[in-house]
Amino acid sequence: MNRTLEFIFNNACPSIIYRIKKEILNHIDIDEEKSLQDQILRDKLVQEFIEKQNVNGWIDEDFHSEKGIETAIRVLSEKGILSGHPSMARMLNELEKRQDTFDKGCLFKVGKILDEKGFGGSELIRATVFTYAGIENKEFIQKQIENSLDKFRFVITVSKIEDITKQYKDKLIFVDGVKWPSIYDLRLLAFTKGWRNEKNKKMVTTSIRQLVKLSPIPDIYVLKGHQLIAPASFCMHDFIPNISNFKDRDWMMWFHRLELLSRLNVVRHISELKEQVDFLAKILEENDGLFNKKLRHYYFTKWGTYIGLALEKDWKSEKRRICDLTFRSLLILYYSEMFQKEFNKKLF
Rank of each mutant, 00 (worst) to 15 (best):
N2E: 13
T4I: 05
E6P: 01
N11A: 05
N11V: 05
N11M: 08
C13T: 15
I17D: 01
Y18C: 00
L25E: 12
L25K: 12
N26A: 09
H27A: 06
I28A: 04
I28R: 09
Q37Y: 06
Q39V: 02
Q39S: 11
D43T: 06
L45V: 15
V46N: 09
Q47L: 06
E48Y: 05
I50R: 05
E51N: 13
Q53E: 08
V55K: 13
W58P: 01
W58I: 02
D60V: 03
G68D: 01
G68K: 03
G68C: 03
R74N: 07
E78Q: 09
E78M: 12
S83D: 05
P86I: 15
M91S: 03
E94Y: 09
K97M: 10
D100S: 12
K104F: 07
L107T: 05
L114A: 09
G120V: 01
G120E: 03
S122R: 04
S122H: 02
I125A: 04
R126L: 05
V129E: 02
A133K: 02
A133R: 06
G134T: 10
G134I: 00
I135C: 09
E136V: 00
K138A: 04
Q142L: 08
Q144F: 01
S148E: 05
R153L: 09
V155Y: 08
I156G: 06
S159D: 11
S159W: 09
D163I: 00
Q167G: 01
Y168C: 00
Y168S: 05
V175Y: 09
G177I: 15
G177N: 06
V178Y: 11
Y184L: 11
D185W: 08
L186E: 11
L186F: 06
L186A: 12
F191E: 14
G194D: 12
R196G: 00
R196A: 08
M203R: 02
T205A: 14
K213Y: 08
P216H: 04
P216D: 01
D219N: 07
K224I: 00
Q227M: 11
I229V: 08
P231W: 07
F234M: 01
D238P: 00
F239I: 04
F239C: 07
I240K: 15
P241L: 06
P241M: 10
N242I: 04
D250S: 11
W251N: 00
M253E: 11
F255T: 07
R257L: 14
R263H: 07
R263M: 15
V266W: 02
V266T: 11
V266D: 04
V267G: 14
L273V: 13
E275Q: 15
Q276F: 07
V277K: 13
V277C: 14
D278C: 09
A281E: 12
K282R: 12
F291V: 07
K294Q: 13
K294N: 14
K294W: 07
Y299S: 04
G308E: 01
G308Q: 04
L309K: 01
D314W: 00
W315N: 01
R321V: 03
I322G: 03
I322W: 03
C323E: 00
T326I: 08
F327A: 08
L333N: 04
L333D: 05
Y334W: 15
Y335A: 14
S336I: 12
N344M: 13
